[in-house]
Simulated scan of single mutants.
Amino acid sequence: LFCRIVDRGSFSLAADELHITQPAASQQVRSLERELGTVLLDRSRRAVTPTDAGQVLYRYAREIVDLHDRLRTEIADLGELLAGEVVVGASTGPGEHVLPGLLTAFKREHPGVRVALHVDDTHAVVERVLAREFELGAVGAVSPRPDLVAEPLARDEIVLVCSPGHPWASREWVTLEELAAEPHIVQQHGAGVRTVVEDHLRRAGLPPERLNVVLEMGLMESAKQAAIAGGGVTFLSRWAIGPELRHGALVAVPVQGLRILRDFYVVRSRTRVLSKAAEALLDFFREHYAAARAPEG
């Protein structure tokens, strides 16, 4: 409970996740503070933060949680039969377009393993991996963090698209200056596509702040539907728009001097010992990525 409160910066969020009431969570922390004879959490700010004593407790408590997880994993792995459950988190790109096929293929090879997939935005997936809610995560953009391990999962291209009725639908290409002025649909902050696109635009000499943003539409699907409806141009993953491009609901528009390739990544906590089932799934991802890239070498 104490680790979850520190991780979330909130009594109420931690209590909700552990299925207890907020007063019960507060009472448990007050009892711990009485036992140790010191204040462990600073409650004076909007986000709850650990005091110096709380930082010490958090460090040791996290080690205890890690040891407990390792104990359960090693005992569960004593059996030779690969079984159990793997909880995977994913951002919308890999979660809706890459993982369903991969997880189905993995399940055929390992019928005794149950896989649960949860879709969220990239930032939330990473945080929930580090909070040990997910054994593995799949995301479209990763910021370097010392407690996170990232490996490539699948190759993707992010393309600019518009509706077939848009003036750009018949263009061979557009310039960065034209892109800056055109009404633009973006995904919410924390979305992997937005992060990658903004990074590439900066490197191409176009600060994202110059874009003429007219709609902010959450994640991939809402941005796609807004573009189909004629709300503006937007950047989307090719994985997400194959049917729309084939059937003419969207048109890909090349941008002069800009090509955005990225890898989707599988991420895990550096300090967590993976279950045998999660290790098998990670190996399966590695083999699939190597096989998919082999012709390029």
Rank of each mutant, 00 (worst) to 15 (best):
H184K: 08
L41E: 02
G101A: 13
V253P: 04
D156F: 10
E287K: 15
A191I: 03
H166W: 09
A278R: 02
D77F: 01
E85D: 05
L41C: 06
T271V: 02
P164R: 08
R203H: 13
A278H: 02
F134V: 01
A53T: 08
E279W: 02
A61M: 04
V233I: 15
L82G: 02
A25S: 08
A291V: 04
V125D: 01
R8N: 04
A227R: 06
L261E: 09
R145K: 11
P152S: 08
S269T: 00
R70M: 08
E244N: 09
T92E: 14
V113L: 05
V129Y: 01
L258H: 08
P152V: 12
V255F: 12
L274F: 00
S31W: 08
G93T: 15
S163A: 15
H166D: 14
R203V: 12
Q27I: 13
E135N: 01
D120P: 01
H184Y: 14
S10G: 07
K224W: 02
R45I: 03
G93V: 15
I64K: 00
G257D: 07
A290N: 08
P94C: 10
E33T: 14
L81Y: 03
G140N: 09
Q22M: 10
V56N: 10
A154M: 07
E96I: 02
R293V: 15
E182Q: 15
A240S: 15
E221Y: 15
P144A: 11
R262N: 05
V174R: 12
A24E: 10
A226C: 11
C162L: 13
L103Q: 03
Q187E: 13
